[in-house]
Every structure is written in structure tokens, then in C-alpha cells.
């Protein structure tokens, strides 16, 4: 059972690093924001694997809706001459 958790943790770690790579290096800014949201999502599940349900719930409640909305709201407002 412990091995299973270790396997899933390693798997999530790799997925997180991949998503962070997208967030840093991709050309379109909207995709970078989406990838940052994905990093937050994966981190939330990982907190749960580390026996921290309080932290996982905070990250889920804040990272899923509020942060994404704020980022995309500002992006939508400045979209006029934003080309990268």
C-alpha cells in the first residue's frame, strides 16, 4: 500500500513539473495561465496524499475558481494589443 502511494506521488510530481514547464515556456499567455491553474490543481491532490486535508481544501477552493477568474479577467481586459 505504501508503495502505491509513492508511485502515485512520483507520477503527480512529474505531471506538475511538466505543467510548470508549460506555464513558463509556452508562447500564448492564456495557456500559461491555464497551466498555472493545473499546477495548483495537482498540488491540491498532492497535499491530500501528504495527509493535509485542510490545506487541500483551501487550495481547491481558492485555486480552482477565484484565481483563474482573476487572471482571465485581467487578460480579457488588456487583450486589445496583447499578442504573445
Amino acid at each position: 500500500m505504501i508503495d502505491l502511494m509513492l508511485l502515485v506521488t512520483i507520477f503527480f510530481a512529474i505531471a506538475m513539473i511538466g505543467a510548470a514547464l508549460v506555464a513558463i515556456r509556452v508562447k500564448q499567455i492564456s495557456i500559461a495561465m491555464l497551466a498555472a491553474g493545473l499546477v495548483s490543481l495537482l498540488a491540491s491532490v498532492m497535499f491530500l496524499f501528504f495527509a493535509a486535508p485542510d490545506v487541500a481544501m483551501t487550495e481547491a477552493a481558492i485555486g480552482s475558481g477565484l484565481t483563474t477568474f482573476l487572471f482571465f479577467f485581467v487578460l480579457g481586459r488588456v487583450r486589445g494589443d496583447q499578442r504573445d
Partner: peptide
């Protein structure tokens, strides 16, 4: 313009 098809994770 969301139908852009740049899928490379390249340097900007």
C-alpha cells in the same frame, strides 16, 4: 482569435 495552432513549447 483562439484557433491559433501554435503547439510548440518553445522559447518566445
Amino acid at each position: 482569435s483562439i484557433s491559433s495552432s501554435s503547439n510548440k513549447i518553445g522559447d518566445k
